[in-house]
Simulated scan of single mutants.
Amino acid sequence: MINIYFLLMILAEIIASSSQMLLKLSATKKYPNFIREYLNALVIGGYCLLVVSMAISIFCYDGLGYMGVVVMEPIGYIIVMFMSRVFFKEKFTLRKFIGMVLILSGIVVFYALG
Rank of each mutant, 00 (worst) to 15 (best):
V71F: 03
I98W: 02
P32H: 11
G63E: 03
F82L: 14
E37C: 11
E37T: 11
Y31E: 09
S57F: 05
G65A: 02
T93E: 06
L50S: 09
I35G: 07
L8E: 11
G76H: 07
V86P: 04
I15Q: 05
C48L: 14
M100E: 05
Y47F: 08
L49H: 01
M81P: 00
Y66A: 09
Y61I: 10
F59N: 15
F34L: 08
D62F: 12
L39Q: 03
F82Q: 08
Y61C: 11
L11F: 10
N33P: 01
S18P: 00
L25R: 11
I56A: 04
I44E: 01
G46C: 04
R85N: 15
C60I: 03
L50F: 10
L8V: 03
G65R: 11
V71M: 09
V80M: 11
F82T: 12
L42R: 10
G45P: 01
K89S: 11
I79E: 13
V71L: 09
C48F: 11
V52I: 15
S84H: 08
S19R: 02
M67H: 10
E90S: 04
L8M: 09
D62A: 14
I44W: 00
S84R: 06
K24F: 01
E13D: 15
Y77R: 07
I10S: 03
V51P: 00
I14P: 00
S105W: 01
C60R: 07
P74V: 03
M83E: 10
M67A: 12
L102E: 07
L25E: 14
Y5D: 13
M81A: 14
L64M: 06
F92R: 09
M72Q: 11
L42M: 11
L102W: 04
G99E: 08
T93K: 06
M100N: 07
I79N: 06
G46M: 11
I79M: 07
K30E: 13
L49S: 02
R85M: 13
F97C: 14
I15F: 00
G45V: 05
L94Q: 14
I56V: 06
L104I: 15
L25C: 09
M81D: 00
I98A: 15
G45D: 09
A12W: 00
F97K: 13
V86K: 12
V101H: 09
A41S: 15
Y5T: 03
L64G: 07
N40S: 14
T93Y: 02
V43H: 04
F59L: 15
L49G: 05
M81V: 14
I103P: 00
I58D: 05
L50D: 07
L49D: 00
A16M: 04
F92N: 08
P32L: 14
P74Y: 02
F6C: 07
S57N: 15
S105Q: 02
M83S: 09
I15N: 12
K89C: 04
L104Q: 09
V86A: 13
C60N: 09
